[in-house]
């Protein structure tokens, strides 16, 4: 098994705050790897260390086998990094931004124009080639940022919450572009607050307080949930959630869309009875209760508690 990103025992502190605490993580070549964790867990710090924007206090990391600390400029020539914040030039047009980054990475002139055309087609930004970046919508900005990151055909892509503030349609489009890149063999390390995006990755890791808690395939994650889980569908589900929580009879009550997930160590039949009686007292109609497999988010919430 070849790893494209090896992170060994990396630590980083800012003043008295420990951002990364001896973190170890390996990402396989050609893999789409999702990094999820609460705010302040160290996701952004980790990505910035990988591209040399921060220097780790301890530990080391290799990118495609190259030591990221000793040969930073070599590493930077084959990685692409997209920061969380939109960081392109608002007064430059789509094409000008892309050409600028191509030149920064010393893409030969002829090759530059070919790639520009290809990326414009790929990102469907073609019709907006002369539009200034500040006049693009949120989704288009993200695609432009990705295009600029891809102009030097990096082997490894580091994306920091690429779909924050982007509407569902653009988000789906963005992820289908990522899937295509993965198909071309690009290694992708992406952080995300969306659990449905995490589910699209080959493997995911939970990061918390600067450490990796769990690393596994998304389909394997739910088996980490050790309690019984029931999905409740009822009227006034938010009110219902509050009643169930206040009864303190259950391990956890979480709202997922219009359903509730109720977890308990007790057998399902007993929990079901308890739910029904609690809600009956509150005059809330139950539509259905059925046992379900945990979702990634259930595990996420559980791991952090």
């Amino acid at each position: 098994m070849t790893y494209d990103i090896n992170i060994v025992d990396v630590s980083k502190r800012f003043g008295s705050t420990v951002a990364l605490d001896g973190l170890t993580l390996n990402v396989r070549q050609g893999e789409m790897f999702g990094l999820i964790g609460p705010d302040g867990a160290g996701k952004t710090t980790l990505l910035r260390i990988l591209c040399g924007l921060y220097l780790a206090d301890a530990g080391h990391h290799l990118l495609a086998g190259v030591d990221g600390r000793k040969k930073m400029r070599t590493v930077r020539s084959f990685i692409g990094y997209m920061p969380q914040r939109f960081s392109l030039y608002p007064d430059l047009s789509v094409a000008e931004n892309m050409r600028f980054f191509a030149d920064l990475f010393q893409v030969p002139h002829k090759e530059r124009e070919i790639r520009l055309q290809r990326l414009l087609e790929f990102s469907r930004l073609g019709p907006f080639i002369d539009r200034r970046a500040h006049a693009l919508s949120g989704g288009m900005k993200q695609k432009l940022a990705l295009s600029c990151t891809l102009i030097h055909t990096p082997k490894i892509l580091l994306l920091d919450e690429p779909s924050t503030g982007v509407d569902p349609v653009s988000r789906r489009e963005f992820w289908s572009i990522l899937a295509e890149l993965r198909g071309q063999g690009v290694t992708i390390l992406v952080t995300t607050p969306y659990m449905d995006e995490a589910a699209r990755c080959d493997r995911i890791a939970f990061i918390h307080k600067g450490k990796i808690l769990v690393t596994d395939e998304p389909t394997a994650i739910p088996s980490l949930f050790k309690k019984n889980l029931l999905e409740l569908h009822c009227r006034q589900h938010v009110m219902a959630a509050r009643f169930l929580e206040q009864s303190r009879a259950f391990e956890s009550v979480k709202i997922f869309g219009d359903r509730l997930h109720v977890s308990s160590h007790k057998p399902n039949a007993q929990t079901t009875r308890l739910i029904k009686s609690t809600l009956a007292a509150a005059n809330i109609d139950v539509i259905s209760i059925k046992p379900v497999q945990a979702r990634i988010e259930d595990v996420f919430v559980e791991l952090l508690q």
Partner: peptide, 14 residues
């Protein structure tokens, strides 16, 4: 301030 420096710095620029 605008964060564009971050994007430039991750290229192999001196």
């Amino acid at each position: 301030e605008t964060g564009t420096m971050e994007q430039i710095l991750v290229s192999p620029i001196r």
